[in-house]
Design a protein around this nucleic acid. Structure first.
Length: 750
DNA sequence: TGCCCGGGTGTTTTT
DNA sequence: CACCCGGGCA
């Protein structure tokens, strides 16, 4: 196929380049992914071996998608050989291969943030530090920031600048905590997220032969979302590319929104210094959005001082103006938005898949969930508590993790007394002290108590022995037998299943279902994994790096997407609702003190707005429930910053009126959600599909008298299209003529 | 060792 | 408001 087909001239220029350093500044919606995939295909059709290509993306989903698209251009056999993934997953893979060089087992565990904080917490306790001052979260962030700047624990302690900074906040011992944290992780055969990058740097720096090996392997390197790379990532890329300098980075400084994670916009600016003979390309034509949205977004971003000059434009149509909705409270905001989505989906004859609600913080999702449920609109929340972070899932995974890596202390502590085995905290604490004294893992102490001076009574001893015996038996199977069989055995033998299935509360049933879902996922894994890696140990390797977005299911079609703006990066929707546009919320209160932070918030708003293809709607509430009482809110400065030509402020009255209509309980809500099911991620399939069945639908004809849950009585004037996509024009005496899609409208014949 | 109750505390954003 | 943690008691 022709790799240049369908590209504009700027895109062709970028796709053409094969060798040498290059940077692509790609405005929002400018076809960045297209350029990346076509360029990679072009490399391959010019004789570059896919085995020599490394492509680093920001999310697993982006990697998967890109791999898929490349494969469809160059063939599956070529495409599959490209190394493509997130920094974290690619370098975890390399670290597992080269584990001996850094003294880790190849099956090291990856600690998630929860695990890390729990380790830190236990250290703070051991060191008898004031836990009011040393909060695990704060300490974790300090350590994380240090690692991302490649500062080791010893460097940290020796660095006088850091020392005085920590002193001034009253926490002079963070360095010591860092040191024993690293020690503990090492002893547990575990790495945290930042270690994956930190240790890769150590590996490449201290072992020239390894560096050479990967420089030779990855002769062509491609980095997506370069504006969001941190120092550790930057250095890895730089050293890998140093030999051949075939490096292509893609990014947009206007969309840099991860500085809190150590991302450094300077990486984009430094590129020129590192590779003076680089080629620069700018993609400025936006194909995604209407003129209104593109221009409004430009008017916002131009308020920022720091940016690379570019002119994003589009030849798309003008489109609708951006609506600004005011609500009186956060709950009313939910209702107004749900109402608007309902109406728009009818008017546009459009699936809910084309709608997204974007917010600044995860906590905001609640009022939207509630109002969507009331209107029976199906939705899916991305992020927040991910599937893998649920308690019951973490419990079962902890069994798997421990069985794969006996040294994993966090997992051991989590499950040794769950389900109850009569091995309590006192016992564990004693064992921990022995482990610390001999600098061995907790498992070693439990496994051979005498050897490490762990005194215990006969009863406890027997209980511990039966536990270790069980885990050991899992351990012998986990990297040999079929993953699903082992997983099921563990779930049963540990009595976790028994324990969960005895809980008949609604929450308990959901937990049990989640376990089922995990087991199903493992069964899938044994079938789909191409190579022969189908043991549970293989499954566990990068399960820590998976996120919700990575498990998109077909059933998620026809649902409104709800997520933070951060999570929406790289996505696009026909209709975007940006909510909670209030001072102190968006922009966040914490950003108001520094120009840089405020500019990042503004970029975040820019990202949010540029997700929209057709329509963007903004909303804010005049008061919001926070920490138990109402606080008054002011509209966000970002609303004023938009060029007023592109927005309409809706009259409050109209929406006030709408509020009344919605809150009228007009549909019998029986069956659907008998009681509010908070925390349920899985929404029943078909919740949105009309309550009347197809035979009812076919009975509706022109002239039928019908009743609509919000518009009341009406008469069918016209019908267009075939079932199930029949569109009806209905006249409602109360609110005029409406276009409705029968399958959504839940019309009832009178 | 395990459960219950009360107080204190917390909201950015994520791999 | 909702959750987590620690203390007190069985």
């Amino acid at each position: 196929m022709d790799v240049f087909e369908g590209l504009n001239s700027a895109q062709v220029d970028a796709v053409k380049v094969i060798d040498g350093p290059m940077m692509i500044i790609a405005g929002a919606g400018s076809g960045k992914t297209k350029v990346l995939t076509h360029r990679t295909a072009n490399l391959i059709s010019n004789g570059v071996d896919p085995f020599n290509i490394l492509a680093l993306t920001f999310t697993n989903k982006a990697a998967k998608e890109m791999k898929h698209r490349i494969s469809s251009m160059v063939g599956e056999n070529e495409g599959r050989n490209i190394w493509m993934g997130t920094f974290h997953s690619i370098f975890a893979k390399i670290l597992r291969t080269e584990h001996q060089k850094i003294g880790y087992p190849s099956n090291f565990t990856i600690y998630d943030t929860q695990d890390s904080k729990s380790v830190i917490k236990s250290i703070i306790k051991e060191k008898k530090l004031d836990d009011k001052l040393y909060k695990p979260g704060i300490v974790y962030n300090r350590i994380s920031a240090a690692k991302n700047s490649l500062i080791s624990a010893n460097n940290y302690i020796e660095n006088s600048e850091i020392k005085s900074a920590d002193r001034s906040t009253g926490r002079p011992f963070i360095g010591e905590i860092y040191l024993s944290y690293q020690n503990k992780c090492f002893r547990s055969g575990a790495m945290d997220f930042d270690d994956l990058l930190f240790k890769t740097n150590v590996l490449l720096q201290q072992h020239p032969e390894i560096l050479y090996k990967y420089q030779e392997k990855f002769k062509y390197i491609l980095v997506d979302e370069y504006q969001d790379t941190n120092h550790a990532q930057y250095l890895i890329v730089k050293s890998l590319a140093a030999r051949y300098e075939n490096i292509c980075v893609v990014g947009d400084d206007a969309q840099s929104i991860y500085s809190f994670r150590g991302a450094n916009i300077q990486n984009i600016l430094n590129f020129r210094k590192d590779y003076p003979d680089y080629q620069l390309f700018k993609l400025e034509q936006n194909y995604r959005s209407t003129k209104t949205i593109v221009n409004a977004a430009n008017s916002i971003i131009k308020v920022n001082k720091e940016q690379i000059k570019k002119k994003v434009w589009t030849s798309n149509s003008d489109g609708d103006k951006i609506k600004v909705l005011k609500a009186y409270s956060d709950n009313e905001e939910g209702k107004i938005i749900a109402n608007d989505i309902f109406e728009e989906s009818n008017n546009q004859n459009s699936s809910f898949y084309n709608f997204a609600i974007l917010y600044r913080t995860n906590a905001q999702s609640r009022s939207f969930e509630e109002s969507m449920r009331k209107l029976n609109i199906p939705y899916k929340i991305y992020g927040g508590l991910s599937f893998y972070q649920r308690k019951e899932i973490k419990d079962l995974l902890a069994y798997f993790r421990l069985s794969a890596n006996l040294k994993d202390e966090e997992s051991l502590k989590r499950i040794i007394n769950y389900p109850k085995r009569g091995i309590g905290l006192t016992t564990i604490n004693k064992a921990s002290i022995c482990a610390n004294n001999s600098n061995v893992s907790l498992w070693d102490v439990l496994n051979s108590p005498e050897q490490f001076g762990f005194v215990l009574n006969e009863g406890t001893r027997a209980k511990i022995e039966s536990f270790t015996m069980m885990i050991k038996s899992f351990n012998t199977k986990i990297d040999k037998d079929d993953a699903y069989a082992v997983a099921l055995e563990i779930a049963k033998q540990s009595e976790l299943i028994k324990n969960l299935s005895s809980d008949k509360t609604p929450e308990g049933i959901v937990r049990f279902e989640n376990i089922q879902e995990l087991l199903n996922g493992i069964q899938e894994f044994t079938k789909t994994e191409e190579e022969e890696k189908t043991t549970l140990a293989d499954f566990m390797l990068d399960v820590a790096l998976l996120t919700d977005v990575d498990n998109e299911k077909e059933e998620d079609h026809n649902r409104v997407s709800m997520m933070t703006i951060h999570a929406s990066k790289g996505l696009e929707f026909q209709n975007v609702y940006i909510v909670g546009l209030e001072e102190n919320l968006f922009p966040s209160q914490l950003s108001l003190n520094s120009r840089n932070d405020l500019e990042e918030e503004r970029r975040l708003f820019y990202v949010a707005l540029t997700r929209a293809k057709n329509k963007a709607t903004l909303s804010y509430a005049a008061s919001r429930f926070k920490w138990g009482n109402f606080i008054n809110c002011e509209p966000s400065r970002f609303i004023e910053e938009i060029d007023p030509n592109y927005i309409i402020e809706s009259k409050t009255k109209k929406y006030f009126g709408a509020k009344k209509t919605i809150s009228k309980p007009s549909i019998p809500s029986k069956n659907i959600f008998t009681k509010p099911q908070r925390n349920l991620k899985r929404v029943d399939k078909n919740t949105s599909i009309s309550n009347i069945n197809p035979s009812d639908l076919t009975k509706i004809t022109i002239g039928s008298e019908v009743k609509h849950e919000r518009f009341g009585k009406g008469k069918i004037i016209e019908l267009q299209g075939d079932f199930p996509n029949t569109k009806a024009t209905v006249f409602f005496p109360s609110s005029g003529q409406k276009q409705l899609l029968l399958k959504f409208a839940k019309l009832q014949l009178i």
